[in-house]
Amino acid sequence: MSENSLEEFEKVSCSVQITPDTIVKVAHLARLAIPENRVYSYTLIIGDILNLVAQMNAVNTDGIEPLLNPLDATQLLRADEVTETNQRELYQSVAPRVEEGLYLVPKVIE
């Protein structure tokens, strides 16, 4: 763990105080349109959950290799060969809005 992240770590471990502003910011990062009247209840429950996970901080994990995959396996890569045929119509048949083979979204460029 680097010096910088250790500082962050201590900051978090001392106080898992989540503010409504943090919830609004994180909800935006997660692309969730949280209504104002739900922010407070989310703040409380997310705070509770983070306090539960703060148990981890009681354990010294210096020098422990993080476990990314339970089998310590590395990502397999397949040969760079074309194996799929074009099935655009099939895949777009489940899309909410399509036109002439294109997905429709609200206008993004004025």
């Binding site: 763990m1 680097s2 992240s5 250790l6 962050e8 770590f9 978090v12 471990s13 996970v53 981890m56 901080n57 354990v59 994990t61 422990i64 290799e65 993080p66 476990l67 990314l68």
Partner: peptide, 12 residues
Amino acid sequence: DAYYLKAQKIRR
């Protein structure tokens, strides 16, 4: 580092 990485170390 404080959450995901820490949790992966605990997982080890």
